[in-house]
Every structure is written in structure tokens, then in C-alpha cells.
Design a protein around this nucleic acid. Sequence first.
DNA 1: GCGACACTTCGCCGGCCGCCGAAACATGGC
DNA 2: GCCATGTTTCGGCGGCCGGCGAAGTGTCGC
Lengths: 230, 230
Amino acid sequence: MHAAPTRYQLAEIGSLLADPSRAAILLALVDGRARPAGELARMAGIAPSTASAHLGRLLEGGLLQVLEQGRHRYFRVASDHVAQVLEALPLLRVPHACAPEPAVDTRPLAFARTCYRHLAGRLGVAFYEGLRRQAWIELGEQAVRLSTTGAEALQAAGLLPHGTAGQVLAGRGCLDWTERRFHLGGALGVAVTEQLVRRDWLRRHDGSRALLLTPPGRSGLRRLGIVLDD
Amino acid sequence: MHAAPTRYQLAEIGSLLADPSRAAILLALVDGRARPAGELARMAGIAPSTASAHLGRLLEGGLLQVLEQGRHRYFRVASDHVAQVLEALPLLRVPHACAPEPAVDTRPLAFARTCYRHLAGRLGVAFYEGLRRQAWIELGEQAVRLSTTGAEALQAAGLLPHGTAGQVLAGRGCLDWTERRFHLGGALGVAVTEQLVRRDWLRRHDGSRALLLTPPGRSGLRRLGIVLDD
DNA sequence: GCGACACTTCGCCGGCCGCCGAAACATGGC
DNA sequence: GCCATGTTTCGGCGGCCGGCGAAGTGTCGC
């Protein structure tokens, strides 16, 4: 069972986030990819020795996982939960009244990108809406499930990974910070997004979280009843 | 619009949580009550001057609000969002595999308590289930709404505050750390819980978050179709 | 008005922590 | 084996921050 949090637990988590360099490392990892220590040091703008210390603390604190491969050590966030909280935390300071400014449209990022490891941006919202309109997903308390017809449709389109036919994949609505609307997150969102990339409907834009919609992807999505307004 | 979080924003939030005394202050306030500075100093075990500095920082950082009343200053958390995140943060360290231990039943707290300012514990879960079974609430992506029949039923039972007849009160499913099931949170949960206390169906146990179910409360809830299994 | 009280501001101290460079350690390629 | 590369360990430095008590500001009650 979860105990009620103590001041020390809370402070320890806080300490892990409290340093700009550690925060930079975590933010570099929210896209879900695993990166080696040296690269993270460069991204955070600190010496490798310093980064090593930070990574050790984040590891110890359970926020990161490490994959050892020869002389490299690849780090990634320990769970979706971590990425989710990292994206939600800075919203605390905006006490609800976040004026709906029209916002500069930072093009490719606003159109399609990964949020943690699932599809976000305008395309992510359109995808989610398409699923919902056709009753391919069902909404729960804080979760989203594929309906029977939805599972069949996505399976037929090749958007579900192999061996998940019978499984119940749970997702969650994830609020988009550019669109202010929901898109599909959670394990289901990750699985579908991976398939979209694997089938080359979407292509990763290297060095960025942006995603490029390919021509076959565009027509494939249209066949699935997903409407893009541009 | 929300910008993508920067390392500095994240680090600043982290810094606010990083100190055990500040964490103690925040945890003392998660029940949603407003407390004066001196009391918080005692609860955290620090000198009033030290507490004053901490409270200033938490205020500045937007995590707390202050209500000035004469020579007292009452502090409370700035939003439900803050309390929600405070309860969720320590779960980060448990990397998902939280073994479902039978758990020591810390009696009154497990039966009924406030979580932020809404009803939680076994009674909270039963209440939520009762509403759901009778289709008095409708589930959305991350929100919960009263259905028309639900609004009528709660109104008739006197569990909605005055002047909210026409309003749409939004709630949310809130995962219970003792029950591992959902109960009713958000503005709707707070409003209903306040009415439950005001009508003396529930009574606050002073100095604790525990709530006592009174005999009229027990029969009232039974009339509402809420089943208690004890 | 004049204490009592609640809280804040100020100045000072001590410790923790992040930073780096140098050196050590490990791995892979030749 | 030997060098190049990736990463960690260690020592030392500097700054930040939390702690307190004393003094200052504001409010209530008589």
C-alpha cells in the first residue's frame, strides 16, 4: 500500500528536480528516448563528470533507468508516470487562469510531435477525435480503452503491434499544451504511435520531437476517417 | 498558451519542494484548510521567522494563497492542482510495481477522510460507486459530470450547495491510496463533501483528516442507494 | 494609548551542494 | 599490448540557503 507521503519523501523528489542541470537532463529525456551520458552532458551544458554525478542521483532516486551497452550507458526516464508529471509540474505556477493567447505557431512542432512517446500536436488531437467520433475508444475515469470495433479497425489498418490482438491496451487522455485539447496517451498511445512510425506513415525528424506526415500516412489516416483541417 | 517547460521553471518548482520544512508545510495544507503562519511553524518544527521565509517563497512561487485577517495570515494551497500533484509525486519513486499488500488498516482514516477537501477512503469509494451505478455521473476524458437525473437526486437530498442548481459542477476521478479505486474529487467532490459535513451526515474529527459517519448520515446514504459493506 | 500578540525583516553563521579538472577505470578497435 | 573513447571517482573551491535570535511593523483588546 502507499503510505501517506512524508516531508522527507517529498523533499527528496523536490531536490532531484531542484537543479537546472538535472532538470535539463530530465527534459532532454521526456521524449522517451534513451541517451548516453556524454550526450546528456552536452545538452545540459556541463562537464561529463558533473553530469555523471547528476545521473547517479537521478538513478538512485528512481526517476531514471539505465541500459548498459559496452562502454556506453544509455539513460531514459523510468516510467511514463515520470514524463507525465514532468510535463504537468510547471502548470502548477499558472494558477488556472492561463489566458488563451492565439500563440505563435511553431510550425512542425505544433502540427505533429511526440509527447513522451506518443503522438501529440494538431495531428494527435485529430487522431484522437477521429477515434472518438467513430466510437473506437471508450472513456473511463482517467483511462481510455479501445472498443471492440475500434480494436478491429486499428488491427485491420496495421496500427496495433503484433501479439496484442487479445490484450486490453489502456490509454489516457493527455492534454496538449499547444492545442488545449486531448490526444491519446498512455500505453495505447505509445503502441499506436510506434506502429505509425514503423509503417512510415510518420517519420521522425532527427534531433527534434517533430514528426513528418508522409503521403501514404496522409491517405492512410484519411481512410481511417481522421480529418485534418489543413 | 503554455510554453514547453524550461529547465529553470522545473528547477524552481523543484526548489520549492526540496526543503523538508517547506514540504512539511505543504503536507500540512493538503487537506485544503487554511492555517495561520504560527501554527504552520509549530507543525513544521521551526521558528516563526524561518516559517515566514518559507511561506514567502511558497507564496511567491504560486503554490500557496494567503488570506489576511487582522493580525493573522491564513495560508492555503493555491489550487486543487497543487494538492493533487503533491499526493502524486512520491509515487514516482515506486516504479509501478507497487505490490498489492493487504495493508494495515489504519481504521478511521481508511474508512472516511478528506483528500484535499473531498471525501476519500472506503466511504468515498462507495459514494462514487453508488453515483456511477445509478448513472448519476458521466465520465469524460479526465473529468466527471453530474447527469440530469444525478443533479436532481443530489439536489433533492440536499447535497448540492444553494445556488448551484443550474451550474455544471465538474469533478474528477481521484485515485485512492488506501483503496486503489476511484472516488469523487474536483470541485464537485468538494461541494458535495462540504454539504455532507454541513448537514451533519459526516463530522470532522478534529486534528485529523478522518471523518465520522453519523447515524443520520448512514441512513441518508442508504436512501441514496449507497452501499457500505461493513 | 499601552501592552500583548502575530508576523516579518535583518544579520549572521554553518553546512550542503554543484562546479570543474585531473586522474582512474572500463571498453573497443587496431 | 596500446591508444582512443566513454564514463566515473576524487579533491578542492565557491556560492547558495536554511537555521536562529533580535529587532521592527502592524493589529487587537483593555
